[in-house]
Design a protein around this nucleic acid. Structure first.
Lengths: 220, 220
DNA sequence: ACCGAGACTAAGCAAGCGCTTAGTCCGTTT
DNA sequence: AAACGGACTAAGCGCTTGCTTAGTCTCGGT
């Protein structure tokens, strides 16, 4: 599961390109070819969409010939899958870290939703691929990603449940409210882009606060 | 040339149907071919995405030959554009109607957001096309749709501004909050489908209430 | 009886697609 | 020094794509 990603990372780390490759445009030291391919594919998928992107587009951006893609990924869809796994895993880890460091349920909700929203702004291209190209994954791959999504959902719904029990929150349908809270944060990647004035940090702060407002018991 | 045609003519005339055109599946009385094409395209675009859908898919679902599409729409992209205009116009009209019928700003926000969310559940296929395939419109068409979106935005942001002035709402960044409120409602079309237990009506009611919660002045 | 116009189709074209094949290059191993 | 094996490419295969062409059928107007 998670180990897959780590194994591949380790393998890539172990083959740093040596000295004399002077043939191609400089392969940007420290970046493995699979990583460069994933980065290139993210940019293309995010701006044109999965189906509108050709393997030639990806290869060109990564500085490879069209056939070079298939040395590292068996298919275009596998590239999308790799990107999806990376993105969901990164987001999930950030969420869990934020949830662990927090105190009361309102604090936990503020930091987790804030972190999540900030990620959707900061890495809006990864986020778009992860969110909008998800339906184009192969059935098997989609099932696996769905598991990761359920984990993400659970981090938030656990906080809501805890907050209801502690009396901080007033929520009558926890799953539905979890969905609404995450909807707000996810949608950030739709409108955010590098020209926008607000910083990802302040977006995160704002959305954390909005989430708390949405579920807090009304002052009596 | 002409002679060839005439020969075929005679042959065809002699062979087939006597009176009624019974060749195609019944053209569903009252539904024009362009409408049937739009309906077919919505289903295909919503489930497979614009670029993954072929003009042959659309033609087949509408009961036409592949070339039949081009009698009514000059290109596949024009079909997407027609669907987008219809969808945005319908949503905008519903919003304006809801806003007019409402009293206080909280009432107005509740009914407009509720209506908007309900539409995104009820017509989730139209909504998906309208929301997710928007980036694949041609530049010119995208600009026009963007105008319609600004109108939709304004309906909600006007309500927020009025609510702040009347003292009902506590919002420090009206455009940003408008975005967040609409985000929640728009995202409904991502997860809603016909197998979901909650009715579009109850989703609308819930989201209207959530929106009001999100912006109301906290009780002192 | 004939014409013209519009809706529609059979056939197909040029372009572009994902992916494969057959090979080159080059550092490492033996 | 020979053999190996992984990264990479030039060329291209077979298929699908959006769209066109040339023609048929039907019907309302004259």
């Amino acid at each position: 599961m998670l180990s897959l990603g780590r194994v591949r990372d380790a393998v890539n780390m172990s083959l740093p390109t040596s000295l004399s490759s002077r043939r191609r445009p400089p392969p940007r030291t420290g970046t493995s070819t699979p990583d460069r391919l994933k980065e290139a594919a993210v940019v293309e998928f995010a701006t044109r969409g999965f189906h509108a992107t050709t393997t030639r587009d990806i290869a060109a951006r990564a500085g490879l010939s069209p056939a070079g893609v298939y040395v590292h990924f068996p298919s275009k869809e596998d590239l999308l899958y790799a990107i999806s796994v990376d993105g969901h895993t990164a987001a999930l880890e950030m969420l869990r870290e934020a949830a662990e460091d927090a105190g009361t349920p309102p604090d936990a909700l503020r930091t987790t939703v804030g972190t999540f929203a900030q990620w959707h702004a900061e890495r809006f291209q990864d986020a778009r691929v992860v969110q909008y190209e998800f339906p184009h994954l192969a059935h098997e791959h989609r099932e696996h990603i769905l598991d990761l999504r359920k984990d993400i959902n659970r981090v938030v719904s656990d906080i809501l449940t805890a907050g209801v029990e502690s009396g901080h929150f007033d929520v009558d349908d926890v799953p539905a409210t979890t969905l609404a809270v995450l909807s707000m944060a996810v949608d950030v990647c739709r409108w955010y882009d590098s020209e926008i004035r607000r910083s990802p940090e302040s977006i995160g702060t704002d959305y954390g606060e909005l989430a708390v407002r949405l579920v807090s018991r009304r002052g009596a």
